[in-house]
């Protein structure tokens, strides 16, 4: 998964819908741990500004 930082507003919606705890908000940025990620696509769908895409 890849975050477009030009779009991301760090709202945290993706964090809440991630089923495997692979996304965190820390130090005012969203980070996705691609090792943990199961590519379910929940974050891609739920992001209000569509800032996340599958690599």
């Amino acid at each position: 998964m890849k975050i477009n930082r030009d779009l991301c507003d760090v709202c945290g919606t993706c964090v809440a819908v991630c089923p495997v705890d692979a996304i965190i908000v820390a130090e005012f940025a969203v980070t996705i741990d691609n090792e943990k990620c199961i590519k379910c696509g929940n974050c891609v769908i739920a992001c209000p500004i569509k800032a996340i895409s599958e690599e």
Binding site: C11, G12, T13, V15, A16, V17, C18, P19, D21, I24, V25, A26, N42, I45, A46
Partner: peptide, 18 residues
């Protein structure tokens, strides 16, 4: 808030279905 990490740090399941 919605992006809560505290719960997850403590092992609580906080995920929200789509």
């Amino acid at each position: 808030g919605v992006e809560s990490r505290v719960g997850r740090w403590a092992g609580i399941d906080t995920k929200v279905a789509l």
